[in-house]
Design a protein around this nucleic acid. Structure first.
Length: 943
RNA sequence: GCGGAUGUGGUGAAAUUGGUAGACACGCCAGACUUAGGAUCUGGUGCCGCGAGGCAUGGGGGUUCGAGUCCCUUCAUCCGCACCA
């Protein structure tokens, strides 16, 4: 009987699907069909010229990691995809592209462990990423795909590096200029007009310049170049024979293996980004970044105004130069602190203190910079035995070294004013140093007071003077005495640009007798040689140093063996998309003039100070040198929030293979173990899948509650290691790309971070099915009519147009999705199947759910793709109301409401409200004190 | 320690300029249809209260006729960092 019926139903189903093959929402078939169609018709090819206005919409391109794409990646990609499609419908020529930031440490690390060449794993990972991206139906112009590890791409990364190498920053014209121009200046007038940014001590006349050897001249030029060589400390791990990133060092030992890590000075490349500090700061005024983002960049650049002051050392010819933002506090200086790395340490330490200083230096050597920054409560330091002399009153104060003063900032030395600076105060307390109070009652003796508004005391000629005024007086006095000067300082440091690694861009630099020269342009790219062994070279050099045939070009001629850091390729990739196949230049000037700035750039905040500052700097350099016509790369920036993982836990009873459900776990001694979120439905574990998940769990037993195993949960970073990653492919195959796209948007504002939760996806899927039913009925087939729409239907449509247009334009995609739902719900209630209404709905929907929109568009008879349809225009006349339901409040609390004409004036409204019985009841005869009427908003009666 | 962000129902969230807090969803409850349903549809759902009503946007204070929104203060959570003088 049951079989009979079942077969019967099946038969009818088959019959109907054969007769009306498209009448149910078969998203799998629809999405596959249109994705193929779009590829075949080159639907997303973009031309570099058009009569339409241009719009450049860009994602931060991904590093193709082995873990593949997780649901966090597409959040930003879907946003830009919607925006790009929206702008296209609005009549723009839209550049929307994707590529891969393919150089990086993980691939090299993997190669070290497995012997697999990074090029091979990278290519494999890119393939995976591409498949995952294609699944979601993005409108990228894939003919413009780029890969930073492709020689055809990094040829131009190297070329731009050479532009930096061949340039200097002219502080007079405030822009980068060719080194050859600088040489002409030196030949004419020496460097008196252009003090050396790398070393202020360097001063010479034209005659002296001409007398220098080539080596000497090039040494000097190196101090001016925007890409330059200098010595800097790196984290050196002797046991691993390699240099480590800060991340890889934990508590002074290597993360891998736990070997000791010390600092080692190495000659490395730097970018002189500090010369651009002020322009990077000013440029922020011209771009649309969030205030938070601008604030972070400003803080990173860290412009401060202050003074440099020289202190003599007692019984010595040496001087300590300090930078301070508070010259007004100079009479409150109770001691000096210099960085342990400071070159003066050797010179001024007294014999009695030598042993203590040596011991302290050894201690500092073991401390990572990160530790020195974050461990504030631990106060350490050591007295050098030397005394500095306050230049204004001759007071002698002890000179200490301490790790809280860093060599890289300012002059690497500070004058300590314990009554005004908390760190100095703590230091003085800890070492029992006397504290001079120069701010009277403002200083309690219990903590420092960094005020700028006190009246100075105990301050010699500044007594009774306001601090702000005092600062100026001190600077003038010091300048007069020739021992100090006003100085603007930036906390940003020059950017380290060398990595002792294999998987990065080789430098286009050769050394002749130790002097660096640029590789000729015609010899670019300097290709990364293929190697079999990824082990580091001698003395911490990169693996390239091992390839002697490659390194040694001729006797006395060697290649640079460092490679460029991860951010090299990403600092200019947005330019390459414009003209990706050009072999003559990185991007044709006419084409980059056409596309100009990226109009909207979307990516995570983690790049706030790295990538975004570097790419802004590179853009400015290329602009200065005349290669492009704009000096800020990104006109508008949207920061997508981080999708966090929502981890699930099972609780194993200690020493057994038995797992106890969350609610009962406290009755046992258990260990919490991460379990793959993909085998958990909500918090309910699929026990069978769990057993199959890993061999060790095959025989697992369970203590259930209500016949279910309930998992614990916690929000953590989404990571393969925590088994909380969700692959978009799984969701796409279950619900379709359109549902997935809309669900990611429906989750909340793009900018907001939130844990991933698949729960609500059903609601979005239901919405699309409901939309489908406005067009087609499984039994009756297509139900769209040509009837004229009613005012009510037009109102629903135009309310939706208005809301969705505005929401899309302002990246408020979550509210747009809800507007779609409201629209479809309303049309369903109205039984509206009219093409006049539905056509517009489909166009509105195209950016969000392009596959279903295109399918229905074709179903209702269009031959042309919906991708180029004209965006509906909102007409206010359809949504206008004549009445408004006023909330009536008494003393600010809403008590009732009244529907009144919108054009009624205030007097009329007041009369109508007071005449209302309900209102009279609430007023209860109390005298009216005030009536507040906001037309079209609310009415408030104050009694 | 510094910098940035975020706190609204059981959950994700919504709320132009200060003007009806909780739209839209998820979940849950009840019901309809159905052999069945992880399908579809209808109704309900912030909290307390039988009710009138009261209370609600992390806590406390303030400005205002009116505050999720503005100001002060405080707590919690997340992210970043180079103790930046």
């Amino acid at each position: 009987m049951i079989t009979w019926l079942g077969l019967d139903v099946l038969y009818i189903r088959l019959l109907t699907t054969q007769l009306q093959p498209y009448m149910e929402y078969n998203f799998r078939a629809i999405e596959k069909k249109w994705q193929e169609q779009w590829v075949n018709s080159h639907a997303y090819r973009v031309k570099n010229d058009s009569t339409k206005p241009k719009c450049y919409v860009l994602d931060m391109f991904p590093y193709p990691s082995g873990a593949g794409l997780h649901v966090g990646h597409p959040l930003g990609y879907i946003s830009t995809d919607i925006y790009a499609r929206y702008k296209r419908l609005k009549g723009y020529n839209v550049l929307h592209t994707m590529g891969y930031d393919a150089f990086g440490l993980p691939a090299e690390q993997y190669a070290l462990e497995t012997g697999q060449h990074p090029a091979v794993t990278t290519a494999h990972n890119i393939k995976t990423f591409r498949e995952q991206l294609d699944n979601i139906g993005f409108c990228y112009d894939w003919s413009r795909e780029i890969n930073t590890s492709d020689p055809a791409y990094y040829k131009w990364t190297q070329w731009i590096f050479l532009q930096l190498f061949d340039s200097w920053y002219n502080r007079r014209t405030e822009k980068a200029e060719a080194i050859s121009e600088l040489v002409k200046i030196f030949e004419k007038e020496g460097n008196s007009q252009h003090p050396c940014p790398g070393d202020r001590q360097i001063q010479f006349t034209a005659a002296q310049w001409k007398g220098y050897t080539e080596a000497e001249q090039r040494d000097i030029l190196m101090q001016y170049r925007l890409a330059f060589l200098a010595y800097a400390e790196v984290n050196w791990c002797a046991a691993l024979g390699t240099v480590l990133a800060n991340d890889e060092v934990i508590n002074g030992v290597s993360e891998r293996g736990g070997y000791p890590v010390v600092k080692k000075k190495m000659r490395q490349w730097f970018l002189r980004i500090t010369e651009y500090a002020n322009r990077l700061l000013e440029g922020l005024e011209t771009v649309e970044f969030s205030d938070a983002m601008k604030e972070m960049q400003r803080n990173w650049i860290g412009k401060s105004q202050g003074a440099e002051i020289k202190f003599n050392i007692k019984n010595s010819d040496e001087q300590i130069e300090v930078y301070t933002t508070r010259p007004d506090t100079i009479f409150g200086v109770d001691f000096m602190v210099i960085a342990p790395e400071h070159e003066l340490v050797k010179k001024i330490t007294t014999p009695e203190q030598q042993a203590a200083i040596d011991a302290y230096l050894e201690y500092v050597q073991s401390r990572s910079e990160r530790e020195r920054m974050s461990e504030v409560k631990q106060i350490t330091g050591c007295f050098t035995g030397a005394y500095a002399i306050n230049p204004l009153d001759g007071r002698e104060v002890p000179v200490w070294i301490a790790e809280y003063v860093l060599a890289g900032y300012g002059t690497g030395a500070i004058m300590a004013v314990p009554c005004g600076d908390q760190r100095d105060f703590n230091f003085a307390r800890h070492f029992n140093l006397p504290i001079t109070n120069i701010i009277g009652d403002a200083f309690t003796g219990e903590e420092a007071n960094p005020t700028k508004d006190a009246i100075l005391q105990n301050s010699n000629f500044l007594d009774g003077i306001d601090m702000r005024k005092g600062a100026d007086m001190v600077i003038s006095k010091l300048e007069e005495m020739g021992i100090g000067r006003r100085q603007i300082n930036y906390k940003m440091r020059d950017a380290g640009f060398s990595r002792q690694r294999y998987w990065g861009e080789p430098f286009p630099i050769i050394y002749k007798d130790g002097i660096p020269y640029a590789v000729e342009e015609k010899d670019l790219p300097v290709e990364l040689p293929h190697i079999e062994n990824y082990k580091p070279g001698p003395e911490g050099e990169g693996p390239l140093a091992n390839i002697t045939d490659w390194v040694n070009i001729a006797p006395g001629v060697k290649r640079e063996t460092n490679t460029m850091p991860g951010y090299a390729g990403s600092s200019w990739y947005f330019l390459r998309y414009m003209d990706p196949h050009n072999t003559q230049t990185f991007a044709d000037r006419q084409i980059s003039d056409y596309w100009n700035q990226v109009d909207v750039y979307v990516g995570g905040t983690e790049h706030a100070v790295g990538h975004l500052l570097y790419s802004r700097m590179w853009t400015k350099v290329l602009y200065d040198l005349g290669h492009i016509g704009f000096h800020e790369p990104f006109r508008k920036l949207i920061n997508q929030g981080m999708i966090q993982g929502s981890s699930r836990f099972v609780y194993r009873v200690r020493g057994t293979n038995e797992f106890v459900s969350y609610g009962l776990k406290d009755q046992y001694e258990t260990d919490a173990l991460h379990v793959d979120v993909n085998i958990v439905d909500g918090v309910v574990l699929d026990v069978e899948k769990f057993k199959a998940w890993r061999n060790e769990y095959a025989d697992a037993t369970f203590i259930l509650e209500n016949d279910q195993y309930i998992c614990g949960q916690e929000v953590e970073k989404m990571s393969k290691r925590l088994f909380n990653t969700v692959n978009p492919n799984d969701l796409v195959s279950r619900y379709g790309a359109d549902t997935f796209r809309m669900y990611e948007m429906f989750l909340g504002p793009v900018e907001q971070s939130k844990p991933w939760d698949t729960k609500g996806i059903e609601g979005v899927h239901r919405f699309l099915k409901k939309l489908w039913r406005l067009f087609a009925d499984e039994q009756k087939g297509l139900v769209v009519t040509s009837d004229n729409p009613t005012p009510e239907e037009l109102k629903v449509l135009h309310t939706a147009i208005n809301k969705i247009d505005n929401a899309t334009n302002s990246f408020s995609f979550n509210t747009a999705v809800s507007a779609f739902m409201i629209c479809v719900n309303d049309l369903t209630t109205l039984h509206c199947h009219k093409r006049n209404i539905l056509e517009s709905v489909l166009i509105l929907l195209t950016p969000y759910a392009p596959h279903i929109a295109e399918e229905l568009w074709q179903l209702i008879g269009f031959n042309e793709s919906i991708l180029n349809a004209p965006y509906p225009v909102y007409k206010e006349e359809y949504t206008k109301e004549s009445d408004f339901t006023y909330p009536i409040a008494i003393n600010g609390k809403t008590k009732t409401e009244m529907s009144l004409p919108l054009d009624m004036d205030e007097a009329g409204l007041q009369a109508a409200v007071l005449a209302n019985e309900q209102v009279q009841k609430y007023l209860d005869g109390k005298p009216l004190r005030k009536v507040i009427i906001v037309k079209g908003r609310m009415i408030n009666l104050v009694v």
